Amino acid sequence: MTYRVRIENADGEVVTIEISADELREKGLTLEELLPPNARIVEVEEVEP
């Protein structure tokens, strides 16, 4: 499974990243732990691999 994640950074700019569930598991991280300081998740969407 892959996630498309929209993130708002500290400057108010919204960027989109895609990350797979396998990648998260391998790194032992959650989506929140990948965020840079002062950023927030705006939207998470599951996409087909």
Rank of each mutant, 00 (worst) to 15 (best):
P49D: 11
L35P: 02
S20A: 08
G12P: 00
V14A: 05
E43D: 14
A10N: 07
V44F: 07
E45Y: 11
L35V: 09
N38V: 02
L34P: 00
P37V: 07
P36G: 13
P49I: 14
N38E: 06
V44N: 01
P36A: 05
R6I: 15
A39T: 14
V14K: 05
V47T: 05
L35N: 01
V14E: 08
E8G: 02
R25F: 11
E43M: 13
A39V: 13
K27F: 07
L24I: 07
I7L: 07
A21Y: 09
T16R: 02
E18V: 14
P49R: 13
I19D: 00
V14F: 13
D11M: 10
R40E: 03
Y3L: 12
E48T: 14
I17N: 00
D11I: 07
I17H: 02
E26F: 10
T2G: 10
M1A: 08
R6Y: 10
K27Q: 07
N9C: 15
T16V: 15
V5H: 00
S20C: 04
E45M: 13
V47A: 05
E8Y: 10
L29R: 06
L24V: 04
E13A: 09
E45D: 06
E48F: 15
I19C: 03
E48R: 14
E43S: 15
L24P: 00
E26G: 06
S20T: 12
E23M: 13
V5Y: 03
E8H: 06
T16I: 14
V14S: 06
V47Q: 05
K27M: 10
P37Y: 04
V5E: 00
R6F: 11
R4S: 02
I17D: 00
G12M: 02
V5D: 00
R25S: 07
L24D: 00
E43T: 12
G28K: 07
E23N: 05
A39N: 04
V44Q: 02
E23W: 15
I7K: 00
E33L: 06
K27C: 09
E26Y: 08
T16P: 01
E23I: 09
V15T: 09
N9S: 10
I17M: 09
E48K: 13
A10H: 07
E43Y: 14
E8M: 14
E8W: 09
L34S: 06
D11T: 09
E18Q: 07
N38R: 07
P37A: 10
V44E: 01
P36M: 04
E46F: 14
Y3M: 08
E33F: 05
T30L: 05
E48C: 12
E23C: 14
L24T: 01
G28V: 02
E18M: 14
T16D: 05
T16Y: 12
E23K: 06
E45I: 15
N9D: 06
L31I: 11
L29C: 10
G12V: 00
L34D: 01
G12T: 01
T30V: 05
A39M: 08
P49C: 12
A39E: 02
E13N: 12
E32C: 11
N38M: 08
V47W: 11
I19G: 00
E23G: 03
V42C: 07
E33G: 08
D22A: 14
V14C: 11
V5T: 00
R25I: 11
V14P: 03
R40L: 05
V47P: 03
R40C: 07
L31P: 01
A39R: 04
I41T: 02
M1K: 15
V14W: 09
R40S: 05
G12F: 02
V42W: 05
R25H: 10
G28T: 02
N9Q: 12
E46M: 15
Y3P: 09
N9F: 15
E18A: 05
L34Q: 02
E33H: 07
V5F: 03
L29T: 06
L31A: 01
I7C: 05
N38F: 12
M1L: 15
K27A: 08
G28E: 04
V14Q: 11
A39D: 02
P36Q: 04
E46A: 12
R4Y: 09
V15E: 09
A10I: 09
A39P: 02
E13P: 01
E32P: 07
E33V: 04
N9G: 10
I41C: 04
E23V: 10
G28R: 06
P36C: 03
N9M: 15
V5I: 13
M1E: 06
S20W: 05
V5W: 01
E32H: 10
E32F: 08
I7T: 02
D11E: 11
E48M: 15
I19P: 00
E8F: 08
V14Y: 13
V14G: 03
L31W: 06
A39L: 05
D22R: 11
P36H: 04
E33N: 08
G28W: 03
V15K: 06
T30R: 10
T2L: 15
V42L: 15
L34K: 03
D11V: 07
P49N: 13
R40Y: 06
R40M: 06
R25T: 08
V15L: 11
D22H: 11
L24M: 12
L35R: 02
D22L: 11
I19A: 01
T2F: 15
I17W: 10
E26Q: 12
E43Q: 13
I19K: 00
I17V: 09
I19S: 00
P49W: 11
L31D: 00
E23T: 09
E33W: 05
D22C: 12
V15W: 15
T30G: 04
L31E: 00
S20M: 06
E32R: 07
I7E: 00
E26K: 11
M1G: 10
D11R: 08
P37S: 07
T30P: 07
V42N: 01
E13H: 10
V15Y: 15
A10P: 10
L34C: 08
G12C: 04
G28Y: 03
R25N: 09
L35A: 05
E8C: 13
V15S: 11
I7Y: 15
I19L: 03
E43V: 07
R4A: 03
L35M: 07
R25A: 09
N38C: 10
E32T: 10
R4Q: 06
T2N: 14
E48Q: 14
V5P: 00
I19F: 08
A21T: 06
V44T: 03
I17E: 00
A39S: 14
E32K: 10
V15P: 00
K27N: 07
R25K: 12
E33P: 00
V44L: 08
E45R: 10
P37T: 07
E46G: 06
R4L: 14
E43P: 01
L31Y: 02
E18K: 04
N9A: 08
D22G: 08
L34R: 03
T16K: 02
T2E: 05
L35W: 03
I41Q: 01
R40F: 08
P37L: 09
I19T: 02
V14L: 13
D22K: 13
L29I: 12
I19Q: 00
M1Q: 08
P49F: 12
A10W: 10
R6S: 13
L31T: 00
